[in-house]
């Protein structure tokens, strides 16, 4: 467990950890620059770019016009020309506006140039529900990006992972889609003072356990850990696996856990249909069918646009309780069968 390994000491908020990663990488490499809407003096709506403008100036911290497709495309072009841009799109819900630049330009460029060109480009954005922001500001669209070969897709759940992964993303020579969660920015966790990176494509066991594997990413990890505490009280020892990077996926880590626990719950905030959870489930049943003692359970968002109404918003979003229920079902399904 990465976090447990860090010595007790400094804690940072998720947004502060991201801010520190940007600062360190901008100091280390002057081809790194950031751009987005209101990220300069205002420091971005979620305060991830606070103060960057004071240290690095307006040439490397660019406030853009409200023109997502063109400034994202400009970022991709700058990357092709040898810079390392980090572009911020305020809400993942606005990425449809930039999809051509991401899917057809950034993701394909290296391939189409016969592996001669490269696109060291990071797109930072955030998704998720929970703030009453309704249908156009609450989505989880990671599956879109995972579906496009040529992109790395990262979804950190802790401040430690956020910092280490953002640094790796910036150093990566291809396009990385870096997905944050609006409810995580204020969460705190240990972040060592000493420099470190977290490798892309490497998952992490957030809690060890023997009885059931709960696979979750981004904000769902918090719910999964809560669920594991509840399950522990009932004598079920859950292991929480956080892939951290969804593409490429750390399949080794997942399979290892599945072989150990023989029960799987996948928890995603995104709507279920066409989601990453289904893809992971299909992979597990293909590779570890003989180890499974019960069907894989997927806990996911309801297949609907997000309602504005507070209660209904909550009803459409999965929480710890649903994960607990699903874990019990898989574990007891087997007990029933073997009784």
């Amino acid at each position: 467990m990465a976090n447990a390994k860090t010595k007790a000491g400094r804690e940072l908020q998720y947004r502060e950890a991201l801010n520190e990663a940007l600062k360190e990488e901008m100091r280390r490499d002057d081809t790194v620059f950031v751009m987005g809407e209101n990220i300069g003096e205002r420091g971005g709506s979620f305060k991830v770019t606070v103060d960057l403008i004071h240290e690095f100036g307006a040439d490397r911290v660019l406030d853009t016009p409200l023109a997502e497709a063109s400034f994202t495309g400009a970022g991709v072009g700058a990357a092709i020309a040898g810079m390392r841009p980090v572009v911020e799109i305020l809400f993942i819900d606005f990425t449809p506006l930039i999809m051509d630049q991401i899917a057809n330009q950034a993701a394909k460029y290296r391939f189409m140039t016969g592996f001669k060109g490269s696109v060291p480009f990071v797109l930072r954005t955030q998704g998720g529900s929970g703030n009453g922001l309704a249908a156009q500001h609450s989505q989880n669209l990671e599956a879109w990006f995972c579906h496009i070969p040529g992109l790395r897709v990262v979804m950190p759940s802790t401040p430690y992972d956020a910092k280490g992964l953002l640094k790796s993303a910036i150093r990566h020579d291809g396009p990385v889609i870096f997905l944050e969660h609006k409810l995580l920015y204020q969460t705190k966790g240990p972040v060592p003072e000493k420099e470190y990176v977290v490798e892309l494509g490497k998952g992490d066991i957030k809690r060890e356990g023997r009885d059931v594997t709960i696979i979750a990413w981004s904000h769902m990890v918090l719910h999964a850990l809560k669920a594991a505490d509840v399950l522990a009280q009932e004598g079920i020892d859950a292991e929480v696996v956080d892939p951290r990077t969804l593409s490429p996926l750390d399949t080794e880590l997942i399979l290892e856990s599945v072989r150990k626990t023989e029960h799987v719950v996948i928890a995603q905030e995104a709507v279920r249909r066409g989601g990453v959870g289904s893809d992971i489930a299909s992979y597990i049943q293909e590779q570890a069918f003989d180890y499974l003692d019960a069907p894989i359970r997927i806990v996911a968002g309801h297949n609907t646009p997000m309602p504005f109404n507070l209660h209904l918003e909550s009803v459409c979003t999965p929480h710890a309780e649903e994960i607990v229920a699903a874990a019990k079902e898989t574990v007891y399904a087997e007990k029933r069968a073997s009784a």
């Binding site: 156009q136 504005f308 109404n309």
Partner: peptide, 30 residues
């Protein structure tokens, strides 16, 4: 966010529409 709202409370401030009077709606995407 109430059911008696123009959009049954599902839209909220950024998504009010009243098609019956020709207001095709607000938008969360600028």
């Amino acid at each position: 966010g109430k059911e008696t709202g123009y959009c049954l409370g599902l839209g909220g401030s950024m998504h009010i529409a009243d098609i019956t009077v020709g207001n095709l709606g607000a938008n969360g995407i600028v």
